[in-house]
Design a protein around this nucleic acid. Structure first.
Length: 610
RNA sequence: UGCCUGAUGGUGUAAUGGUAGCACAGGCGACUUUGACUCGCCUAGUCAUGGUUCGAAUCCAUGUCGGGCAGCCA
């Protein structure tokens, strides 16, 4: 199987109960090929919970040389917008890049299902854009650039409205669906309760001819919203409430983002989803646990139609719950509206766009969700697992740099004011063939405020009065004097540099307990650095009565940092490890060539801090 | 007092009738010009009670606890 990343090449293919089922089907030759789908509703931004689903669906497609269709589940005209379609495509593209983009199933722009004959029976089918012809990378590029005349696009459930309508007519003709005049409120009352059977609608036994006529008039726009609906005729006494004559179509005189004003009746999820899967030739329709009860309806609709091709099946897994985070759309929205964050892509948000902006690599998200596994157990995953995955990826990929967040001036009294000593700093210590860059040591440097303590706590092995530490990549220094102003505030530290302890010098091997980072006062650059922390103070903010009350007031701290000069040209997309501090990346929105703005993706692990 | 679904260390997840393992977190130590990384060691678990079996996390029964379901949302 194709695999571009070395990290995942070393990782064995994941195994879980759904993959076991798929493998079984492959062994049995049940389908011609494996086709999954990721079907978001374009009414919000994708978040880390979606990442689990995306990686599962694309992962399975990838492991079986199959396809995963990206489909907009857009059957509700009132809630969906084109703006979201674009962000969803971009987020999915980013998450699967260099991993499963060869499995991304798209369709020719504007394509709708075609009629075909299977075993002498009429059938509808929508073919994906051929891989060889369009070239995934090419088609994606065009999708991402709306100015170009692209020829592929995601699948849209709304592209199937004609076929869905035809299927509904078939259901009516078979006496399996009827037009119901009950109001929404009455429908509710007639449905009964989980422990109490429902009652049949008085309109349940209309003739086929009357149902056909009424349904046609619904479509023609003769009735008001909610005045009538199309219902499946199943069983009002079923213990499964979703089988109590569920609604198939509702009337909505509302324009749709994709079909405009072509329709005033719109199919509901349960009706549209199984058939969309069928039309696209999906084999494994994987969704979350809340749809378990809907599976009987999924199967009922497909079987009621007597469709000629192999039917898709639905499988359910538990969605991701992550400690210290919320993902529900309502809560995410209120974080934005209450201005607790700056937007959907605020680096503290668990949205894919927020995580991306924060500097989290897509590979880290994939590593994370793979590690979490796929089960039916409703669990709460420790954020530490996510953080670990991020550090793993970044440790291997990020260039090392020196930066000081909270500068304290330090004077090397035995260096002349204009003297510079060039040191070699390692860029990539994890590499088999590390490279270096020059760093200038000067008389005045900045060190981290945290790295000096006038009254050191026990086991403090950084700088203290009379103590020695190594300046990373330079030499050992000794703190001779602490200079303070009249109010007792620290002005500067006066130290002696032991130049013969530099690399290559006679005493290079001299050991000291601590090594600290630094930047030259004369040669550094300044930057705004945004220090992010978790957004909430409790592991399960969604369980709070008011989750806004447990927002972490210190989730963002902004500092003006001093950076080594090589960082002056840092560009968005680049990721650095500031030694002894953490991983940082230029903010793609706010960082400019004249004003550097960096986001802290994550700190380094720090046992000492505990 | 309905239906569906689940329960393995602190957390997540393996073991599909045959040695309860892995990862994260935590602890101790080694290494270290990053208190990082890496490496070694350690802590800690089968919801309960019965049953079947030579043998049960696994199969059966009962119970307990958790999650989901009664939108013309998805």
């Amino acid at each position: 199987m194709p695999d571009a990343t070395s990290a995942s090449a070393a990782t064995p293919a994941p195994s879980d109960f759904i993959r076991d089922i798929v493998a079984q089907h492959v062994a049995e030759n049940r389908y011609a090929g494996i086709v999954t789908r990721f079907p978001p509703e374009p009414n919000g931004y994708l978040h880390i919970g979606h990442a689990k689903s995306i990686c599962l669906n694309f992962g399975i497609a990838r492991e079986h040389a199959g396809r995963c269709h990206l489909r907009m589940d857009d059957t509700n005209p009132a809630k969906e917008e084109t703006e979201y379609v674009d962000s969803i495509v971009a987020d999915v593209r980013w998450l699967i890049a260099d991993w499963a983009d060869h499995c991304l199933g798209l369709k020719p722009k504007g394509a709708t299902p075609a009629t075909q004959t299977v075993n002498g029976q009429a059938d509808f089918y929508i073919a994906p854009a051929p891989r060889a012809q369009t070239g995934i990378a090419d088609s994606i590029a065009k999708i991402e650039n709306p100015k170009s005349n692209f020829e592929t696009e995601p699948f849209f459930a709304s592209d199937y409205f004609n076929e869905l309508h035809a299927y509904a007519v078939t259901l009516i003709e078979r006496g399996l669906a009827y037009v119901c005049d009950l109001s929404p409120k009455e429908t509710d009352e007639f449905r009964g309760a989980p422990d109490r059977p429902g009652r049949e609608s008085p309109f349940r036994h209309r003739s086929v001819a009357e149902n056909l006529d009424l349904f046609a008039r619904m479509k023609a726009g003769e009735f008001l919203d909610g005045a009538r609906s199309l219902r499946a005729k199943i069983d009002m006494a079923s213990p499964n409430v979703w089988l109590r004559d569920p609604l198939l179509y509702r009337i909505r005189h509302t324009a749709h983002h994709h079909t405009g004003n072509a329709w005033c009746i719109y199919p509901l999820y349960d009706y549209a989803h199984c058939l969309s899967d069928y039309l696209e030739g999906i084999t494994h329709s994987i969704c979350t646990l809340e749809f378990v009860d809907h599976r009987a309806l999924y199967d009922w609709i497909l079987h009621a139609l007597g469709l000629p091709r192999p039917l898709p099946h639905q499988y359910e897994f538990a969605k991701l719950n992550l400690g210290y985070t919320v993902v529900s759309k309502r809560r995410l929205l209120s974080l934005v509206q209450e201005k607790i964050v700056t937007g959907w892509d605020d680096p503290r948000m668990p949205t894919l766009s927020g995580l991306r902006r924060r500097g989290v690599p897509a590979s880290a998200l994939r590593r994370f969700v793979t590690g979490v596994g796929v089960t039916k157990f409703d669990s709460l995953t420790d954020v530490a697992v996510l953080e670990h995955a991020i550090r793993e990826e970044l440790n291997a990929a990020a260039q090392r740099r020196l930066a000081v967040l909270r500068p304290v001036k330090l004077v090397l009294t035995n260096l002349a004011p204009d003297e510079t000593i060039t040191c070699a700093a390692t860029n990539d210590p994890q590499s088999a063939t590390p490279t270096t860059r020059p760093l200038a040591l000067t008389r005045e440097v900045f060190i981290e405020g945290d790295d000096f303590a006038e009254v050191p706590p026990p086991k403090f092995f950084r700088l203290k009065p009379g103590g020695e530490v190594r300046l990373k990549y330079a030499c050992i220094i000794k703190c001779d004097e602490v200079v303070k102003d009249a109010t007792g505030h620290l002005i500067e530290l006066r130290c002696t540099a032991q130049l013969d302890t530099r690399s290559g010098q006679p005493n290079a091997d001299k050991k000291v307990k601590g090594t600290i980072h630094w930047v030259s006062v004369r040669q550094c650059v300044e930057a705004e650095v945004r220090l992010y922390d978790r957004l909430f103070t409790v592991p399960e903010p969604a369980a709070e009565e008011d989750f806004l009350k447990v927002v972490n007031p210190k989730s963002l701290e902004v500092v003006t940092a001093k950076l080594e000069p090589s960082l002056a040209t840092a560009k968005p997309g680049e990721r650095y490890q500031f030694e002894r501090l953490g991983y940082y990346t230029p903010d793609p929105k706010d960082s400019t060539s004249t004003k550097l703005v960096l986001n802290r993706t994550i700190t380094l692990k720090d046992h000492w801090a505990k």
